[in-house]
Computed example of a mutant assay.
Amino acid sequence: MKILAASREAFLELGYGGTSMDLVAQRARVSKTTLYTRFPSKEELFVATITAECDRYGLRFAPDAFDDLPLEEALARVGRRFVDLLWSPEVIKMHQTVVGEASRFPEVARLYYQGGPEQAVAGFVALFERLARRGLARIEDPVFTAMQFLSVLQGGARCALELGLCDYPPAEEREAFVRKAVALFVRGIV
């Protein structure tokens, strides 16, 4: 959708504080009425923009979508989606922007969390609940398990990327990292 594409560009370029609804309407080449009909506020547009980026990387998935795969392969596939999103230049830039603006615009951190991390955690909680019901993993607390799994995947190059100390790792490096992280994690839940 061209509105979300325009808002993504504007938020990345100008941050939350520098982006206006008028600017997004102008860049999307839609009327302000059309924009406000779809997204009644800048806050809703920001959350929708973050959510759309997560969706673009496949983080909105049905927990049963991986039923035909062994545990480690299922976690590797969803883990790779998460790492590809989290380490992407766009998400690194957006995260830097949000952290930088959070003191001036406290709501921006809450909106970012609502549009991205909160939804990702919910998807992984549902996946871990399903894995436990199927008897593939010993999981007493799916929320804690999901949070720990996502924490493991936030390691690797993430910090160096956020600090601008390395380039975006190639696909084979991201894949190797995910496979190692998943193997380590699986040893703790089976």
Rank of each mutant, 00 (worst) to 15 (best):
M1V: 02
K2A: 13
I3A: 05
L4I: 13
A6W: 05
R8F: 12
E9S: 13
E9Y: 06
E9F: 01
A10T: 02
F11I: 00
L12R: 02
E13I: 01
E13H: 05
Y16H: 08
Y16S: 05
Y16T: 01
G18Y: 00
T19L: 03
T19P: 00
S20I: 04
D22F: 12
D22K: 12
V24E: 02
V24T: 01
A25W: 00
A25G: 15
A28Q: 05
A28T: 09
R29S: 14
R29H: 13
L35N: 04
L35P: 01
Y36D: 02
Y36K: 09
T37D: 05
T37I: 01
K42F: 08
E44F: 00
L45P: 01
L45R: 06
F46W: 08
F46Y: 12
T49Y: 05
I50M: 10
I50P: 05
D55K: 15
Y57T: 00
L59N: 05
R60T: 13
A62G: 12
D64H: 12
D64F: 10
D64Y: 07
D64K: 10
A65Q: 12
A65W: 11
D67H: 04
D67E: 15
D68A: 15
D68I: 03
D68P: 02
L69F: 10
L69E: 04
L69W: 06
E72C: 05
E72Y: 04
L75R: 00
L75S: 02
A76H: 08
R77M: 11
V78G: 11
G79E: 02
R80I: 05
R81M: 10
F82Y: 15
W87K: 10
P89M: 09
V91Q: 13
H95T: 13
G100S: 06
S103Y: 11
R104I: 03
E107M: 10
A109P: 04
A109I: 06
L111V: 08
Y112N: 07
Y112S: 04
Y112I: 01
Y112A: 11
Y113M: 09
Y113S: 13
G115T: 10
A122H: 03
F124E: 01
A126I: 01
A126S: 12
L127P: 00
F128N: 02
F128S: 07
E129A: 07
R133E: 15
R134I: 00
R134D: 15
L136R: 14
A137N: 06
R138A: 14
E140Y: 04
D141F: 03
P142H: 00
V143G: 05
V143S: 12
M147L: 14
M147E: 14
F149L: 06
S151P: 00
S151E: 13
S151C: 08
L153S: 04
Q154W: 01
Q154S: 13
G156S: 10
A160V: 01
A160Y: 07
L161I: 12
L161P: 03
E162K: 11
E162M: 15
L163Q: 14
L163H: 12
G164V: 13
L165I: 03
C166D: 03
Y168N: 07
P170I: 11
A171E: 15
E172R: 03
E173N: 07
A176H: 03
V178I: 05
K180P: 00
V182A: 06
V182M: 07
A183T: 13
L184Y: 14
L184V: 14
F185I: 08
R187D: 13
R187Q: 14
G188W: 10
V190M: 12
